[in-house]
Simulated assay, not measured.
Amino acid sequence: MGESEGLFVFLNPFFPFTTAKVLSLKASVLLLLTLLIKARVQIVTGSAVGILLLMLQTLVFLAISGGLV
């Protein structure tokens, strides 16, 4: 029985990982995914704000130059 346990330890590549290490790895992955989603949302909202500001700038330019008359 001692040999089979030693063989199991040798064949199991995840044996050095304890529960704390696995949980910390899962928490890190969750944090990184959350930050990635947050960055994507900021890019989308930034693009929307940029488009609105561009439209406002175009309307102001047309109003000043008389293009809306």
Results as ranks from 00 to 15, higher is better:
M1G: 12
G2C: 02
G2K: 07
S4I: 13
E5F: 05
E5Y: 03
L7K: 13
L7S: 06
F8S: 07
F8N: 09
F8T: 10
V9N: 02
F10S: 10
F10Y: 05
L11M: 08
L11H: 04
P13F: 02
F14M: 01
P16M: 00
F17A: 01
F17K: 04
T18M: 00
T18S: 11
T18D: 15
T18H: 08
T18Q: 07
T19C: 03
T19R: 06
A20Q: 08
K21N: 05
V22T: 05
L23F: 04
L23V: 07
S24Q: 13
S24R: 14
K26F: 08
S28E: 11
V29H: 01
V29F: 04
V29P: 00
V29E: 05
L30N: 11
L31V: 03
L31G: 01
L32T: 01
L32M: 06
L32C: 01
L33P: 00
L33M: 05
L33C: 02
L36A: 14
L36H: 00
I37G: 01
K38L: 14
K38T: 14
A39F: 01
A39S: 09
R40E: 10
V41T: 08
Q42M: 06
Q42V: 03
I43W: 07
V44I: 10
T45Q: 08
T45D: 05
T45S: 14
T45K: 02
G46T: 04
G46K: 05
G46F: 07
A48E: 10
V49H: 03
G50C: 05
G50E: 05
L52W: 04
L53K: 09
L54G: 11
L56W: 10
L56Y: 10
Q57N: 04
T58Q: 10
L59N: 07
L59Y: 10
V60D: 09
F61W: 13
F61A: 08
F61K: 10
L62Y: 11
L62V: 03
L62F: 12
L62I: 03
A63C: 09
A63H: 14
A63F: 14
I64T: 12
S65K: 14
S65Y: 11
S65A: 15
L68M: 13
L68V: 14
V69Q: 12
V69E: 12
